[in-house]
Design a protein around this nucleic acid. Structure first.
Length: 590
RNA sequence: GCGCCCGUAGCUCAGUUGGAUAGAGCGCAUGGCUACGAACCAUGAGGUCGGGAGUUCGAAUCUCUCCGGGCGCGCCA
């Protein structure tokens, strides 16, 4: 609807190029918005005001000229100049009724855009370390990433979802040693658990499984294990302590056994994460293992290329990347003094690989605490000649969980924290997702458990789902009463007399709102803002509820009934499409 | 100290390529079920858009500055 109008405006401006003294007008410049006040018509454009300065003419004069140059079209009833130079479009009355027909014809595809040359987008999100279960912060990232992927796909991008498994590096070694220490306990040893280990209960089953497989083969007396290690916190340094413990473990049990512990621990954590995401309805196209990626030599090759470009140098025994050349605050280490490559090194290679796989746009959904990291990764891409713009990193602000009005602690190394699974089981997937998605990603979120569970009106999921179910209920009632509804017949009635049959403030508001859906999808994609869709769906549900309360649907008059049912089914379709994009179910009854 | 995010109605928040009278939900007040689901609807009260300055036809939106809150600033990931 909006696109048709946009084309008319473009044509008008093209024909005026000479007289406006402003040269060709970039179509991007043409802003066309829904009028907030119906007195201003259906759509309004401020293009005349934007051109006024360059053209050296008053906005209203330009507006008049544009209107005069506007090609005749059946969709436009009349056009006015208003205010400082707004061009207000009043559309043909039957246009909204015709849009209903379009919704019925396109069904699930309504609102989806099909550009000629779709972008290839790589969307990486969650990528939580496989060192424990996902927490409520990951839940927000998962909901956002998944919905954003759906929104982009609906807007016409080809989206690939990827999970990068951080299964290399120190954190996984800490995981393995945590499992081993719990294993020692399972063997009957009594000891003090390291401060910097993963102390969560989820470690214990992994340790018990290890005990079942290995028996006491990896058991060593506590005195041997801790003999001569640097002191743990609070007296000593917990980092030094755990690193020494890792080294001790590897010596005592041997490298082959260490590898078994490491791999089985990671596999167990990863299985739980995949299971969690699966249960949450989040599915990936690719799972990329950092270890496999590194072992394939990709990181070494990337570093070699950087050396060849003279973008690495050695200082203090470590090798550094000249990140400052690309806007970072300081240069960054890629190879540590001990010869081990940093996570950043593999991330450079990984992002380079994404581009070399042919993706136009890379999106990393990150927790807000990673914001300082983005510049250097972008710098890595720029070092290989890629534009910095090809990487975007929407930051997801923190989630604070409240129960009974009390904020709950969330550290992964703490014994007790609320997992995503617990949250889902407590409040349900749908409420969970909507709650996460209704706020802008750069707004921190207080997740009130009691509120999400209470089925109160403050949780819009019920409101929107109820609107959807309500239409289903009307259809059931129609059948119960034995009333006639023929879709083809209704279509013809709406095409012929839709504007008059669906008149009245509530019907008009509903029809106008439902026709906005394609615009909302586009805007939501452009702004990387799934929450805009949540707000829209709530608004659409409002117009449906208002219409339902104002007008009786199942009336004896066939034409009126058909038109109203036809309209409700169209709104229901759009609600379903929108909920689908958000990853929320659209129930027939509640 | 530096960087990023946030500050809008009593509460939680929408509103960013600058546009017409700043919106929604909750809460509060009042009203609506003997006909399709009242998990709903209708009406109303409620604002110096954190403060100040600037840019211009026009600023919640852009710039500067100050205040307040959150998060980062590792040879961790």
């Amino acid at each position: 609807m909006k696109e048709d109008l946009h084309i008319l405006l473009q044509r008008a401006l093209q024909s005026l190029e000479g007289s406006l003294r402003s040269g060709p007008v970039d179509p991007q410049l043409i802003v066309l918005d829904r009028a907030r006040d119906s007195a201003h018509g259906d759509f309004a454009s401020n293009i005349a005001m934007r051109l006024a300065k360059a053209a050296g003419k008053p906005p209203r004069a330009i507006a008049e000229a544009i209107i005069a140059a506007l090609p005749a079209s059946p969709i436009v009833e009349r056009v006015e100049v208003a205010g400082a130079g707004f061009i207000n479009f009043f559309l043909a009355k039957d246009l909204y009724a015709r849009e209903l027909v379009r919704i019925h014809e396109q069904g699930e595809a309504y609102g989806r855009h099909r550009p000629e040359h779709p972008r290839k987008v790589l969307l990486e999100f969650v990528s939580a370390n496989p060192t424990g279960p996902m927490h409520v912060g990951h839940g927000r990232q998962a909901a956002f990433g998944d919905a954003l992927g759906n929104v982009l796909a609906a807007a016409g991008d080809v989206v690939t979802r990827e999970y990068y498994i951080n299964d290399a590096g120190r954190q996984t070694e800490i995981l393995a040693v945590s499992v081993w220490v719990r294993y020692l306990e399972a063997c009957g040893e009594v000891l003090k658990f390291p401060e910097n280990g993963y102390r969560g209960d989820y470690i214990r089953p992994v340790a018990h499984a290890l005990h079942q497989r290995e028996g006491n083969a990896l058991r060593h007396p506590v005195t041997t294990v801790f003999e001569g290690l640097p002191a743990d916190a609070p007296e000593g340094d917990k980092e030094k302590h755990i690193d020494a413990l890792i080294a001790r473990c590897r010596t005592l049990i041997g490298e082959p056994a260490w590898e078994r512990v490491l791999e089985s621990s990671i596999a167990a954590m990863l299985a739980e994460i995949r299971d969690d995401l699966d249960g949450y309805g989040v599915h990936y196209d690719n799972w990329i293992s950092e270890r496999a990626f590194t072992q394939g030599g990709a990181v070494d090759r990337a570093l070699e290329r950087l050396r060849a470009k003279d973008l690495l140098y050695v200082k203090d025994g470590a090798e550094w990347f000249k990140a400052t050349q690309f806007g970072d605050d300081e240069d960054r280490v890629v190879v540590r003094e001990n010869g081990v490559k940093t996570y950043f090194a593999s991330d450079i290679a990984y992002h380079l690989d994404k581009r070399e796989r042919g993706f136009d746009l890379l999106i990393d959904v990150l927790g807000a605490d990673h914001h300082g990291y983005v510049t250097r990764v972008r710098g890595g891409l720029q070092a290989f000649g890629h534009s910095g713009d090809c990487l975007e990193a929407p930051l997801i602000q923190l989630v604070a969980l409240f129960r009974n009005g009390v904020k709950m602690s969330m550290g992964k190394r703490e014994a007790n924290f609320v997992t995503l699974r617990q949250l889902r089981e407590e409040v349900g997937n749908d409420a969970c997702r909507i709650f996460y998605l209704m706020r802008s990603n750069d707004q921190s979120l207080d997740f009130d458990l009691d509120l999400a569970k209470s089925k109160s009106n403050e949780n819009p999921v019920f409101y929107v789902q109820y609107a959807h179910a309500r239409v289903a209920s009307v259809m059931k009632e129609l059948a119960v009463r034995g009333m006639e509804y023929d879709a083809e017949n209704a279509r013809q009635i709406v095409l012929d007399r839709g504007a008059s049959l669906l008149a009245g403030p509530q019907a008009e508001a509903m029809l106008s709102c439902v026709s906005r859906y394609p615009e909302v999808i586009r805007q939501s994609a452009t702004q990387r803002a799934p929450h805009a869709l949540v707000h829209y769906l709530r608004e659409l549900a409002t117009t449906l509820h208002a219409f339902y309360n104002a007008e009786r649907v199942l009336v004896p008059e066939t034409e009126i009934r058909s038109a109203r049912v036809y309209a409700l089914l169209a709104v229901q379709q759009v609600l379903r499409n929108g909920l689908e994009v958000l990853g929320v179910s659209a129930p027939e009854s509640m």
